[in-house]
């Protein structure tokens, strides 16, 4: 059985963020050393993704992932070109200075944004319908249980609710006391 994860404190989160940044910089430095042309194309090609990452406030950075994935489709043919043809910094710079290339890459990113802005609302409507059906099924299951075992079958739930209520009341009382003390 999985143990419930404890929420991380702000200090811990900051430490962990610093650690990730350090690792990312190390990897990027390493890649810049061994594959600088690719890194140049990727840096300029994936700039919309970087911007998306910065402005993204969605849970799990869903917007960044969507934009990044589609953006990568626009960047990848040029990287392949580099890898299969002539892999040099000049060529890479040539690519990123070509307006058509950038148009392809950024159009892909724009398509990613379009996708992110249009699809979730449709999917959420579908999910809402599914959830309603699920709740109805669960209520039906509970009704069957009550019919077979009587109202006492809900005693565990009632007890949990009571405990929750008591805990809530205690917290409320503590809050009131603290306010009075203040």
């Amino acid at each position: 059985m999985k143990r419930p994860q404890q929420p991380l404190s702000q200090e811990e989160q900051r430490k962990r963020g610093r650690s990730y940044l350090t690792w990312a910089l190390l990897v990027l430095t390493f890649l810049a050393v061994i594959a600088l042309p690719t890194m140049i194309v990727m840096f300029f090609g994936l700039l919309p993704t970087l911007v998306a990452w910065i402005v993204d406030r969605t849970k799990g950075k869903a917007a960044s992932i969507t934009v990044g994935s589609v953006n990568f489709i626009g960047v990848f043919p040029y990287i392949m070109n580099l890898w299969t043809d002539f892999n040099s910094v000049d060529r890479a710079l040539g690519m990123v200075s070509d307006i058509f290339t950038l148009l392809v890459m950024y159009s892909a990113a724009a398509f990613g944004w379009l996708m992110f802005l249009s699809m979730p609302s449709g999917i959420s409507s579908f999910v809402l319908v599914l959830q309603q059906r699920k709740v109805a099924a669960l209520r039906g299951e509970q009704k069957d249980l009550i019919e077979e075992w009587g109202p006492d079958v809900a005693s565990l739930v009632e007890m949990q609710k009571m405990e929750k209520q008591e805990a809530h009341m205690e917290l409320g009382m503590e809050g009131i006391e603290l306010e009075v003390l203040d």
């Binding site: 869903a62 917007a63 992932i65 994935s69 589609v70 489709i73 992110f116 699809m119 979730p120």
Partner: peptide, 18 residues
């Protein structure tokens, strides 16, 4: 919550397409 699910699904679709 449903919207978040939709966003998650969209990102997964994008990854698969990519």
């Amino acid at each position: 919550a449903a919207l978040q699910t939709g966003e998650k699904v969209t990102s997964m679709i994008a990854i698969v397409i990519s």
